[in-house]
Design a protein around this nucleic acid. Structure first.
Lengths: 353, 353
DNA sequence: TTGTAAGCGTTATCAA
DNA sequence: TTGATAACGCTTACAA
């Protein structure tokens, strides 16, 4: 009864016994409690080391009523943007002593809810959700404690303009990004602009509207055509390319880089040259956009930083007891090869007038 | 004392009380224990639903001495291959009721060990490690229970050839992949072959050796030149491109797709045309290789499937008590635009073929 | 069929 | 400065 079998795990009692103290003293000693004498502390530390004691986080969590675990829910771990968000989140969390449990929602409402429930059962101290259709209120209801931060919310019920105040949200300044794109398009002399996106996702609508508004506001207002590309069009861009070929615009502004890069390939297949025949602009700044051929002009968003901020916000929420207000991170237009200044009416004749 | 405050979490006792049964009956009822009458079970279920009861996984784990959690340790979550491994792992784990905690080791030995220790404290039921320098034996020592599976081990102490038997390992058949590449190079008529890699990582050495061996074995044996590219060369391929330009070979076989795609860009910058001036071959089959310009000839490895197998192996190990033997997953050469049949004075290959 | 009680490994309270 | 003891919330012998 006294001796533990070979396979048994070493517990605090074993350490205490070996150090000749009580369990509580051992516990306090390992926590470097000042009330325990230095000598006793050392003795306990040594006993623990000798026995290769590994504290049981489960028991500790049960007692402490906090797990030092965050949940991270995202649509797809293999997506480059989400991968970066996850990397930043994990880094910041780990740096502060938090573990990260994660789940992939696959954009499926049911799966997302089930994952949140699992996080709730785990008693995660906080949950971050990336690119979800759930709005913060709904998500919070599913997480006891309601400590939820949403990264790049895609809820139709959530205001995304910069002025609106809301808590527990991290987003990029997409409007500023589109304004920068618009200015660039004007500077390049593009006239016939088309936006490529699904028209459904909130972030898609926000970006398109921002582009329209920015281009309508200039000294020479320009309308924006709209090429519909279903959500997963980047996997098989053929139909979208067909739609584009029906009336090739001067420049395509794409919802994101994945779609833009996919169109680069699709257009090449059909013999359309970028940027000679048509310019292409992306959004996100995924790593590959830097080395595509042609390299992609895009708005770079700080994906890893968003993850880090999400973790930081949760940590702050744990410490202060209140959820910090939304953060909107800056973006930057990076002009590369897929757009360029057009000749003064020379070269290609504009199709759209 | 009887009534819980508003913010308090609902526990099993509350459910039991509301259903008018004891805690144990409630517990059994929620577990659909056949000994509990159907009526009681329903009553308890309803009470739980009314109160929005969420079971406490921490308490359950403490009692059950298993957490239904796996740990996943990989170098970098934002790497496309690792992202896919993680996605597959999470999918298979979730499908079987396991949660996944993950940590990024950043290729740093100290971080890896610390992460494994955290998994140990968490009492993870199993741990998967991707692309680590730790060999299974060392890793197992750090994880109580030793339930560890290594995906694409990179340990110099681990045999990677197909014949050697070992437990808890999932890897791709790199040798077969390189043999396929060699056959393709021969078929294309390439004579001057160069391998680009760091010469340090075990997987790098394995791939290079396999290529050398395969090319030496043909009816017309060919030597393989070796262009050194430090581990992170893909981030800044300039120096490697310089080395290549010093004596441009017929074809470059790269350690992985990241490096190959980066070289595609670097070569283009210097005016070297692919595949006209030099062929390029990658390894891994990351999504972007399908739409690069030119599209990349590469060996496609089943990254997501590796993750899934790793999870399946851990699940089997939990159930059977023994770690299954190594699995070697098949790979497939996919010929695209970055290589092509030489000579015979043919013109440029048409796009989009 | 249901209830009582013990215990999983910690930490915090209260005494000494 | 240290030790006994009671939780934390759940599951499962053992009783009834």
């Amino acid at each position: 009864m006294t001796r533990r079998g070979a396979g048994e795990r070493v517990v605090l009692d074993d350490v205490a016994r070996r150090a000749g103290v009580s369990t509580s003293t051992a516990s306090r000693a390992l926590a470097e409690d000042r009330r325990i004498s230095a000598a006793t502390r050392r003795a306990v530390r040594e006993a623990a080391a000798d026995l290769r004691y590994v504290p049981n986080a489960t028991a500790r969590s049960l007692r402490a009523r906090r797990t030092r675990t965050f949940g991270l829910l995202l649509a797809d771990l293999s997506d480059p943007v989400h991968g970066l968000v996850a990397a930043g989140f994990e880094d910041e969390a780990a740096r502060n002593g938090y573990r990260v449990a994660f789940a992939a929602g696959q954009g499926d409402d049911g799966r997302e809810r089930r994952s949140l429930r699992l996080f709730a059962e785990q008693a995660a101290d906080g949950v971050a959700i990336a690119s979800t259709l759930l709005d913060p209120t709904a998500a919070r209801r599913l997480v006891p404690g309601g400590r939820v931060v949403i990264v790049q919310p895609d809820s139709p019920r959530l205001p995304r303009d910069r002025r609106t105040t809301i808590r527990g949200v991290v987003r990029t300044d997409d409007v500023a990004g589109m304004e920068a794109i618009a200015a660039h398009l004007v500077a390049c002399g593009y006239r016939d602009v088309a936006y490529v996106g699904d028209g459904v996702r909130t972030s898609d609508v926000v970006r398109r509207r921002a582009l329209e508004r920015a281009l309508a506001a200039g000294s020479a207002p320009m309308p924006v055509r709209w090429v519909r590309a279903p959500d997963e069009a980047w996997r098989a861009p053929g139909p979208v390319v067909d739609a584009i070929l029906a009336a090739v615009p001067d420049v395509l502004v794409c919802f994101d880089d994945k779609l833009a890069l996919s169109l680069l390939d699709g257009l090449r297949t059909r013999g359309v040259r970028v940027p000679d025949d048509v310019g292409v602009v992306g959004f996100d700044g995924i790593p590959y956009a830097e080395i595509s051929n042609p390299r992609l002009t895009t708005v770079v968003t700080p994906a890893a930083e968003m993850g880090r901020r999400a973790a930081a916000i949760l940590i702050a929420a744990v410490q202060t007891g209140t959820m910090p207000e939304a953060e909107t991170l800056p973006v930057a237009l990076v002009v590369r090869e897929s757009t360029r200044v057009r000749g003064d009416g020379k070269g290609k004749v504009a199709l759209g007038g």
